[in-house]
């Protein structure tokens, strides 16, 4: 560990910095540069998505009809609320209210689980219908009609169609799987980042419990919060693109 020097006012910082605030500024700048690389990574996907939706507009329109925008909307609100609570927790730490900060972080993690729960439900619904990415795509319109409500039981017997099925397009456009490829790749990578964000916040809660953070030194929580806000930012762009084309 780069050995740390404790300053006169109780704050501590690594030996190669001038003081704890200098370290805080540098760490924050470093986190922002990392966020920039995350933006570029997701951005590459968005560029691919928009260009291909320009090339195959009907594929992406029909694809969007398979998605239930109400679930998307719910997820957006969940993530916005979680951003709100984690911002509050930073504020609490800054003014020394460790207890409230912990609760806010807890709410944020629960929102994360909620988000992943909704995502899991949507995925299972799609797996069930056979709307899988690329070469695993084996969705046949008639199974949609005779499809059982996906409560997870084996569906060897045909059952009535799912209420949220808005499109009964008998004949799908030629390379339909591409929409679902983009859907699963984008939401999959975003979901992984949500999970990473939740682990960071749980770790921050652990250290908060241990009393590592005080108004003078909370860089780690600030980093976790910024990462979480970025995950929310990406979802803000993902929601209209995927669900509301």
């Amino acid at each position: 560990m780069a050995h740390r020097i404790t300053d006169t006012d109780g704050s501590h910082y690594a030996f190669h910095y001038k003081n704890s605030n200098h370290e805080f500024e540098a760490s924050k700048f470093g986190i922002w540069v990392f966020l920039c690389t995350e933006i570029l990574m997701f951005g590459g996907l968005f560029v691919g998505y928009i260009l291909n939706s320009g090339k195959y507009p009907e594929v992406f329109e029909v694809g969007a009809t398979f998605l239930d925008w109400k679930l998307g909307f719910l997820n957006t609100v969940i993530l916005l609320f979680s951003s709100f609570t984690i911002a509050l927790s930073i504020r609490n730490i800054q003014i020394g209210e460790q207890k409230k900060a912990f609760n806010n972080l807890l709410v944020t993690v629960l929102c994360g689980f909620g988000f992943m729960g909704v995502k899991g439900y949507e995925y299972s619904h799609k797996f069930h219908l056979g709307l899988l990415p690329g070469k695993f795509f084996n969705y046949t319109p008639h199974t949609a009609e005779s499809d059982s409500h996906p409560t997870g039981e084996a569906d060897e017997k045909p059952a009535r169609s799912n209420a949220s099925e808005t499109s009964h397009v008998s004949e799908l456009p030629k390379n339909m799987p591409m929409y679902f490829s983009f859907y699963f790749v984008m939401t999959g990578i975003h979901g992984t980042h949500v999970i990473i964000g939740m682990c960071l916040i749980l770790w921050a809660m652990l250290r908060l419990k241990r009393g590592d953070f005080d108004p003078k030194h909370y860089t780690f929580v600030e980093g976790a919060a910024l990462f979480w806000h970025l995950v929310d930012l990406v979802w803000i762009y993902l929601f209209p693109l995927l669900y509301l084309v």
Partner: peptide, 13 residues
Amino acid sequence: CLLAGVFFLVVMF
């Protein structure tokens, strides 16, 4: 940092 990331994305697109 944020704007640079977005700017070069727009250039790529």
